[in-house]
Simulated assay, not measured.
Amino acid sequence: MSELLLICLVAGRRAAIPTERVLSVIELEAVTPIPRAPEFIVGLAALRSQALTVIDCRVSLGFEPSKQVVGNRAAVVEHEGHRYALLVDAAFDVAEPLTDPVAVPGGFGEGWQFAAQGMVETDSGPALLVDVDQILAGPRLARDHLSAA
């Protein structure tokens, strides 16, 4: 594995988002709520006259919502022609993985078991490798409930 990773903090854990998926890292200035949207969708934000759907990574992983949205960092990604801002607790480094991903050890929670492609080692320590598509899909329990209906 030789790609670069955006190292961030999500729900108290060091996480790594492949930079090949990241268009930019922004500080959220204003977010407009979307009525009746699922809880993991915080709302809409603007970036250079483009609308971004803001996704709370914490909620998508099954944790409590972020306490602060405005002023927090977000990784801007594109998926199927739409842009999203992945709200993280902090974004602080770009690093190269030193190892290939290994299985996520227990104790991180069901959300991480589902939405992490594995754990990688970096110069600054281990990080959970984020599967961006799974974060965008929302909490696993909600999807399981909808598919059963």
Rank of each mutant, 00 (worst) to 15 (best):
R14Y: 15
Q113P: 12
P33R: 09
G71A: 05
F114M: 11
R36A: 07
L28Q: 04
I55V: 14
P101R: 08
G107K: 03
A116I: 05
I7C: 09
E29A: 07
L61S: 03
R21M: 14
Q68C: 02
L86K: 00
D133T: 13
V120H: 02
A51I: 15
K67N: 10
E80L: 11
P101W: 09
R48A: 07
G109Q: 13
E78S: 11
G71N: 06
M119Q: 08
M1K: 15
C8P: 09
I26Y: 15
D123R: 11
C8R: 00
R58E: 09
S124I: 13
L61R: 11
E3T: 12
V94H: 04
A91D: 00
T53V: 15
G125A: 05
P33Y: 10
V54I: 10
G43V: 12
A103F: 14
G138I: 00
V70T: 10
I41C: 12
E20R: 11
L23D: 01
R21P: 02
P38Y: 00
A46F: 15
N72Y: 08
D144W: 14
D93V: 05
R21K: 13
F114L: 13
D133V: 11
L141M: 12
L52W: 07
G62R: 02
L47I: 05
Q68M: 02
D56C: 02
G109A: 11
V102H: 11
A149Y: 15
L98S: 08
I7N: 06
R13I: 03
A90F: 03
V104E: 04
P105G: 09
R58A: 09
L146V: 06
A90G: 02
L52C: 03
V132E: 08
I135G: 01
V10R: 00
E39H: 12
A116Q: 05
F114C: 04
P33S: 09
K67V: 04
P65D: 05
R21C: 08
R58I: 04
E121H: 09
A16F: 00
S49M: 07
R143A: 14
L141W: 11
P18C: 10
L52Y: 06
R48T: 08
P65W: 00
C57I: 01
S147N: 10
A142F: 06
T122M: 07
L44N: 04
D93R: 05
G106W: 12
V54N: 00
E121P: 01
G81W: 04
D56R: 01
S124V: 09
E121Q: 12
V69M: 06
L52F: 10
A15P: 00
K67E: 15
R73D: 08
R14P: 13
A11I: 01
E27A: 06
E64K: 08
V76N: 02
